[in-house]
Amino acid sequence: MSVSRYAFAASAVVLAGLAGLTAATGDVPYPDIPKGQGEACVADTEFMRRNHMSLLMHQRDETMRKGIRSKQHSLKECIDCHAVPGSDSIAITIEDPKHFCRLCHDYAAVKIDCFDCHASRPERKVVAEARTK
């Protein structure tokens, strides 16, 4: 009985070590994020990276419950600006790993719930070449 207990503990330590090693050596490359089409109209990039989820959570209630549809915080505008074209200039959807949201969300392994319901590309679909950093 005590042998299996030690074996369990040992394997747990080894696995944890391996996981840490993977993170340290960085097997997953940092994504190459394309710039949006327009000017930043909500807040600067660093702020948005850390807080866009809070803005979305707050704004969805404002729009849904109160009917406030200010353009500055409109999801449609975000998607319009951050649309990434495919090889045929048609904006790609969330299914494509190069979708703007997926680049970081895949890297951070955070599931996106929005696009079960929301369209992940603008209505007008044809998009000019996205600017790179």
Binding site: G38, E39, C41, D44, Q72
Partner: peptide
């Protein structure tokens, strides 16, 4: 929210 770089 800091002021936007471009206002609407």
């Amino acid at each position: 929210i800091p002021p936007a770089t471009k206002t609407f």
